[in-house]
Structure formats: C-alpha cells, structure tokens
C-alpha cells in the first residue's frame, strides 16, 4: 500500500465521517464546521484524482465562499444572541428509509454496471482547461458571467433592508 493510497483513503474517511457528522450533529454552527471539513476533504480527493484546478476552485468557491456565507446566515438568523440554535428533526423514520433506500439502490446498480473506460490515464492540465473554456465552452462561460451579474443584483435586492416596509 503506497503513500498515495494511504492519503487517498485518509481523505476518503474524512469526507465520509464528516458527512455523517453533518447528519447527526445538534448545533448548527458545528454543522457548518463539519460541512467545511467535508468540502476540504473533497478538494483533496479532486487533487488526488489529477484535477488540480477543480480542487483549487473547490477550496476557493466552497470553503472560501459558500461556508462563509452560510456562517453569516446562521449568525444573522440567530434569535437569542449567544445561545446555539438546536436543530430539530422531523419525519426521521421516513427520511432515513428514503436515504438508505437510495444509497443501496445506487450501490446495487453501480456494482452491476460496466463502465468501459480506457486504461491509460492522462492528467488534464490547467492550460488545456483554459483553452477548452475559451473555445468549445465559450457560450456557457459567457452566460455564466451574465448569471453571476443577475445573482449579484438579485441577492442584493432581495436581502436589502426596506425601511418603508414596517
């Protein structure tokens, strides 16, 4: 078992255990921290899977953007100051039934599936991603810019405080 495999399964166990912790944790701030460790572990798995650019983007967008936004949201919707918000569950039996059913169904079908893949691996370089983004994928790339502008304006408009409301 090489060092690479040990590293891979370490981050694998980190991602799986922090996702399970996210399911069972009671304090919502601890849930945000569990999500953060899960996302960082996924970034490490991306880098080990020869996708360095996706790993760095994962750290920048998720760990740097989404989790910080979620923590701001938690703090802004906290009614009682320093008290942690407990998370309550509803319909636990049905939810767990649906989730475990989906998991074992996916396990069953992926174990039966035959993925015909070439044997040799080739790392996609960052240079190649840049060329593809500006040639084959230039239309979705530009539409993404418009989407980001719309989201920026929309989120600021929705969350903005309107003094005349009350």
């Amino acid at each position: 078992m090489s060092l690479l495999n040990v590293t891979f399964y370490f981050f694998y166990a980190l991602v799986a255990s922090s996702a399970l912790a996210l399911l069972f944790v009671k304090n919502i701030f601890h849930a945000a921290l569990a999500l953060l460790s899960c996302l960082l572990g996924i970034a490490a798995l991306f880098i080990l899977s020869m996708a360095e650019f996706a790993g760095v983007a994962q750290i920048l967008l998720y760990a740097g953007g989404v989790v910080i936004l979620l923590i701001f949201g938690i703090m802004l919707t906290n009614k009682s100051g320093a008290q942690p918000i407990p998370i309550k569950n509803t319909g636990l039996f049905g939810g767990l039934l649906v989730g475990s059913g989906l998991f074992f169904l996916l396990l069953f079908f992926t174990s039966k599936a035959l993925f015909v893949l070439p044997a040799n691996t080739n790392a996609g370089s960052i240079e190649k991603i840049g060329i593809e983004l500006l040639t084959d994928y230039v239309l979705p790339f530009e539409i993404t810019g418009i989407l980001l502008l719309a989201v920026l304006a929309g989120a600021a408009t929705i969350a903005g405080y309107k003094a005349s409301r009350n």
Partner: peptide, 21 residues
Amino acid sequence: LSALLLSIGLVIVIVKRNAIM
C-alpha cells in the same frame, strides 16, 4: 462515496427543520 454523500444530502433535506441546514 458519491452515492453516500447524495443519500446523506437527501436525508438532511427531508429531515432537518432548519432552512440553512
């Protein structure tokens, strides 16, 4: 791992009583 994360995410969406969760 991907199947596990998808199932856990679905359970969280169904079960948790908090919008941020």
